[in-house]
C-alpha cells in the first residue's frame, strides 16, 4: 500500500514539475496560467490521493480526500478570476496569438 501511495505521489510531483517548466517556457501570462492551472491542480490532487491511500480511513486520510474537490473548485475559479483580471488590466497577448473575440465584448 505504501508503494502505491509513493508512486501516485511521485506522479503528482512530476506533474507539478511540468507545470513549473510551463510557467517558465510559455510566452505570455495567458498561456502560463493554462500550464499552472491544469498541471498544478492535478499534481496536488494526486499528491492528496497518495496521502489518502497511505493513511487510509483515518483523520489525515479523510482530510486529504475532501481537500480534492475543494482544490478543484477553488483552482478553476481562481484561474478564471486571474485571467479576467489580467485582460481587463490591459496585458497584451503574445505575438503568436491568432484570434481575440473578447476584445469587442469586454468594452
Amino acid at each position: 500500500m505504501t508503494m502505491v501511495a509513493m508512486i501516485i505521489i511521485s506522479i503528482g510531483v512530476l506533474f507539478n514539475f511540468f507545470g513549473c517548466i510551463g510557467l517558465i517556457r510559455l510566452p505570455d501570462v495567458y498561456n502560463r496560467l493554462q500550464a499552472a492551472t491544469k498541471c498544478v491542480t492535478l499534481g496536488c490532487c494526486s499528491i492528496l490521493l497518495g496521502v489518502f491511500i497511505h493513511f487510509g480511513f483515518t483523520d489525515a486520510g479523510i482530510k486529504g480526500l475532501i481537500a480534492i474537490p475543494l482544490l478543484f473548485f477553488s483552482a478553476t475559479v481562481a484561474a478564471h478570476a486571474l485571467i479576467r483580471g489580467t485582460y481587463h488590466f490591459g496585458v497584451k497577448m503574445s505575438d503568436k496569438s491568432v484570434k481575440d473575440d473578447y476584445k469587442s465584448a469586454s468594452k
Binding site: 511540468f18 492535478l42 484570434k99 473575440d101
Partner: peptide, 19 residues
C-alpha cells in the same frame, strides 16, 4: 495534463493561442 506536458516539453512549443 498530458497535453500540457507535451506542449511544454516539445522543443518548438506547438502553440497557437487565442480567445
Amino acid at each position: 495534463n498530458l497535453d500540457v506536458a507535451y506542449r511544454v516539453l516539445h522543443p518548438k512549443m506547438p502553440i497557437r493561442p487565442g480567445i
